[in-house]
Amino acid sequence: MRNLWNLITQYHIALVFFALQALALGWFVSSHGYPRGKWVKQSLAWQGAWNQKLGQWSRLTELDALNRELLTENAQLRSLVYAQENEGRELSIYGAQVVRFTWTSSANHFILDKGTKNGLRSGMGVSQNGIAVGRIIETSDAFSLGLPIINQEVEWSARIGHSGPVARLVWNAPDISRAQLQDLPRSATFSPGDSIVTSGFQGYFPDGLLIGWISDETPEFDGQFLTVGINLAADFRALNYVETMSVVDWESIEALSQSTPDAGP
């Protein structure tokens, strides 16, 4: 026992170091490289309030207020247009402002100045001028935390054109203007410049929202599948006013999906 105590006192710094590293790396690994959990809500509330203050100081003209009005109006109009074009299926769209955005890391994130009290919730898609940008993963009362397409921890469901095949869209750091469409069938026909749009399968976005265009790189063959380079449409360095959206009847679709015989418990 005495020997054990002597060993501990002799190597106490190394022991504390390994304990702290285990704590920090455990935290990092458990969050899969991007923040989530209870502490994020608290942090989001504090940081969001501070970010908004910083933003207020930097707003020197009334242009900002005008932009907000236009954003809200634009969101309402988009909802109406979507409902008309999709035989009454509704889409809730809310305007929000990006108060923080990181684009230099491989696990980027953004914070919006709207939260649950404004109708936002996790799982909503985020777009800018009709271009898919990311999705919300956590909300506090007044702020929301989201992951952009340029986060290599997340995957997106995308389609070539409005009736082409569906594939996985992933971002490989560090170029923020390019992504890859993976698991595309070899039989798929496409050309450089063809548009890539959301499939609507994940429920974050409605179908048909622009993500980018097929680049002129040569596709890579991977067994029965193809990997194709994509030029992303969104300018992630210039994100400011965005729209958050959710397909109103998505819960009914999910419920139906769960009730199929193949669905698990």
Binding site: Q21, L23, A24, L25, F28, G33, Y34, P35, V40, S43
Partner: peptide
């Protein structure tokens, strides 16, 4: 905690 680093900054600082 404030920058949503998820343990990255703590590990490096330690």
């Amino acid at each position: 905690f404030t920058c949503h680093g998820g343990g990255l900054f703590m590990s490096s600082a330690v």
